[in-house]
Amino acid sequence: MSNQSEPFDPFDILREAVPEPTPSKRQTEAARDALQQAIAVERQSRTTPVGARFLPRVAVASAVFILAVVSLSLVLSRDDSATATLQEIAQAARQAEPADIPAEGFLFRESLERNLRILPGSELGLDREFVAYSLGTERSIWRNPQARFVQTRIVNRDPVFYDDAAARGYRSHGMADVDALDQRVIRRFTDVVDPILETPWSESPEQLRSQIVHAIGRGDPDSTSSFMLFDFAIDMLAEPITPSVRGAVVELLATLDLDQVTRNADGSVRLQIEDHDGLSTRHTIVLRADGTLASREIQLLEANPELGLPAGTVTSSGTYSRWTEVADIQP
């Protein structure tokens, strides 16, 4: 029985929420082999006048990066016309029909993406700290927010390399298997609490801005740049948020310091913002006329020698279907 006057002990939560793992046979053998190698090296060094000692170098973890693509047209200056365009889209977003998901049904979205994958060079047998390549991904997502259920189906395809050594290393080190190229990988998640779908976002752009500043964790609006707000706002637009909140997000975008707002012939709008805090990048998104996210792209503006990426590399791109209501999950 809990005693309300006694605060909970977060250490109990840590113990419970991060369960104790047991090493598998493979993991144990790999670690044992590493130790045996070190022992063998020392034994050998005792019989060699000048023994060379090698400390195995630790491999660094991996990381991945994400989404988007494009469109074109006439550029609106960063003035009233840009604001008016976004206001118009916000209005259309607010008027959209809210999703009506039956208890047993799902929201479904497909996307085609190409993302940068970064690994320690050693994983591809290369004598460099990092190696980067891009990987195409077909992704399908089914979710039922009420039931807090998500299923993803992913097929990775067509790795693209930035140099021949990386391509050779990829093939010789069996990375096609690691990336599960051309294979359907299905994962199901239950009890998913998605902050974007479960936060009671304001329908007022001003209040929404404060909420996002808080969510980003800066707390201080002055240290939260237009880019940070933009980035978070786009995450929201990518999700099946309510029409009113979608409208507020688009209105918030209209208040940011965007570099370019372009109206396309089909009524969609292309927004661009550059970020020069650290590596210089250009982020481009296309919103449909109803405020849903059609595409997203991140482009490096300057070369990155560490990753071996030339200036202009698109590090992440994706095109997204609308969220639609479906009755069943497909395999």
Binding site: V64, I298, S316
Partner: peptide
């Protein structure tokens, strides 16, 4: 550094979309 510059990051062992990362 890379998250700021290139987009969301995720673990290759995990699923790689921003939706999935957030989930």
């Amino acid at each position: 550094a890379y998250r700021r510059a290139l987009g969301r990051t995720g673990d290759t062992e995990e699923f790689e979309s921003e939706v999935a990362d957030r989930v």
